[in-house]
Design a protein around this nucleic acid. Structure first.
Lengths: 341, 341
DNA sequence: TTGTAAGCGTTATCAG
DNA sequence: CTGATAACGCTTACAA
């Protein structure tokens, strides 16, 4: 069933059917009704492929997802889902491109299967982004890159988040604080959140005259547990941890409990993670809730804007969710009252 | 840059360029070399859209993902990733269709944006599957449906898994065993894994003359914890739990520990979940490891086969991973030695 | 208000 | 072995 068949049955030309569908030029009430009835009866839907070829736009966005090897987090999954849903709101489809699969990326880009691309987990010098820009493919990155001005981005203000978390903890009297960062490998690859968090932590610690210790931690629960153990061993007088590593959060919590610490009486923990993750734990963790759904929506909106009205200015969205007080942040314990071991 | 431009530069016809690219008819070494050089120099890649229109195949698969509202699990995320990768291996792209978004599904199907569809979390009477079949769109479901013979499927043998888990637990002397199932809502919707697990559990329990109790549990850690608490309250002499609910697994574990039980000395726990999930916990949980990556790969292979060689027989894959002994399965405790509270 | 016809960039058939 | 040329199904000037 194609547009010609509909035209024949309705006794009109193919262009008339097309215009009834698109509304791009007036059609008499009578003809419109006739055509619509035929379309209705036959269940006709125009071929996306043919339309794409004719108007040079695929109505699909690409989404470059992190490699599976790096173990995706539940937050990232939510993000993927929210991108798909937000795109659907704009009548766009989402094409997945598993990063690491160069052929898939090349195909998407070179064969122009999509109108624009969203890139997750970008790093400072991101070759994928560079290539997208070279081919002048509109794109929006999650996280900033070295070519921020030339594309849209949506990012979390890790610097601000870490700064205010440390400030809040310090306000409550804590003096010896640690930062649990993402894995060293990401820091080495200049993964923005990791180095901005580290930077902000070190600055704030100096500014407030605190004793600060920053460590990297693999994205795993076992690593988190080990990390907590080591931190306490290194500095038994530590009373607070700020973490941006969502995947190891639970392990850190476990490590602290294993050391006989009660939260928040003996020790405070503040995280940057999704509400889902923070609330699923016991006790629920005080955290700046990463708004994954909003990020997906904003990314799609930025991309949609860039695609529909080509321009030289791009949307830049820096989100800074508030700290939500739950059960793991409290005043610093009186010296000597803590650390049973 | 299009095929005509390449043809002109190489001094050949467009069809020759096309045949150099596809290899579908012999081309003299001399001409081929010339054409390939021009292609190389210009970085030309044929338009996927135009090709799709001409040969009536999009080289894309659709993937219907569960609604976000139902909180996807980490295993499902792995599955999505593995589908994307397996598809890439066949030079196919993956188009996401968030289920619940009827328009998106309709678009994918009606506008023929894909060559075939993989449907996650299918239920017995699955309207999406029915519609796909009506439109004779090749499809592979994850889980069986009421129209199994007409499409491919990949499923986990929940009946077999639960049966052998219960048998194994019984072998170790346990006599009072509970099953933690997926949420009641899924059971009501005739979600296969849930009702097959229940069925197998009840049968095996009767067969082995055990005391069995099956409960549904929401897909959340807090629900798991509550569930464990209630099970123990109801039957303080319970000594083992078999669960197929991966999302609440950790909560169940917590609930058991809260009740003062040591695993595996006082109590045994056997799960059906991915290795990732089972190993991330403490202690690591004895489980039948759901092979998410393999499932994704098999689904893609089945779909690819159905798409490339239209047929009336479809691949049916029933996977039954082995139980991997970790830290939570042990002999039944001597009566009276357990349950401090 | 409607119809005609020229694209869009491929592939594939049919001659040569 | 290679070149015209007609599809593929739709959109969109341009005419009427």
């Amino acid at each position: 069933m194609n547009i010609g068949e509909i035209a024949k049955r309705a006794g009109v030309s193919r262009s008339t059917v097309s215009y009834v569908l698109s509304g791009k030029r007036p059609v008499s009430e009578e003809v419109r009704a006739r055509v619509e009835r035929v379309i209705e009866e036959s269940g006709y839907r125009p071929s996306a492929t043919a339309r794409a070829l004719a108007q040079g736009s695929t109505r699909a966005f690409g989404l470059v997802i992190p490699p599976m090897a790096g173990h995706l987090s539940i937050d990232q999954l939510h993000f993927v889902g929210s991108v798909a849903e937000a795109a659907a709101d704009h009548d766009y489809d989402v094409l997945l491109s598993p990063s690491g699969r160069e052929e898939a990326f090349d195909r998407m880009l070179g064969e122009r299967r999509v109108d624009g691309v969203i890139v997750m987990e970008t790093v400072l010098h991101d070759t994928r982004v560079v290539r997208l820009l070279e081919q002048s493919m509109p794109c929006v990155t999650i996280g900033r890159t070295g070519s921020d001005a030339e594309h849209g981005w949506v990012d979390l203000d890790y610097a601000g988040l870490v700064t205010s978390a440390v400030e809040r903890v310090a306000e409550l009297g804590h003096r010896r604080i640690a930062l649990v960062n993402r894995p060293q490998a990401l820091l080495d690859r200049e993964y923005g959140p990791a180095y901005r968090a580290l930077d902000a932590f070190e600055k704030t610690v100096v500014e407030l005259g605190l004793q600060g210790r920053a460590v990297c931690c693999e994205d795993e629960q076992s690593a988190g547990q080990e990390c907590a153990r080591e931190l306490l061993e290194e500095d038994p007088a530590l009373t607070a941890v700020v973490t941006i590593n969502e995947r190891s959060l639970e392990g850190v919590l476990r490590g602290l409990r294993r050391a006989g610490l009660r939260l928040p009486e003996d020790f405070s923990l503040v995280a940057v993670t999704s509400q889902d993750n923070a609330c699923g734990l016991s006790p629920q963790v005080t955290a700046a809730d990463v708004p994954t759904a909003e990020m997906g929506r904003r990314a799609v909106e930025a991309l949609h804007k860039a695609v529909t009205s080509p321009t030289t200015s791009f949307d830049h969205v820096l989100l800074r969710p508030d700290l939500v007080e739950r059960g793991t942040l409290g005043p610093a314990p009186a010296p000597g009252s803590v650390h049973p071991r």
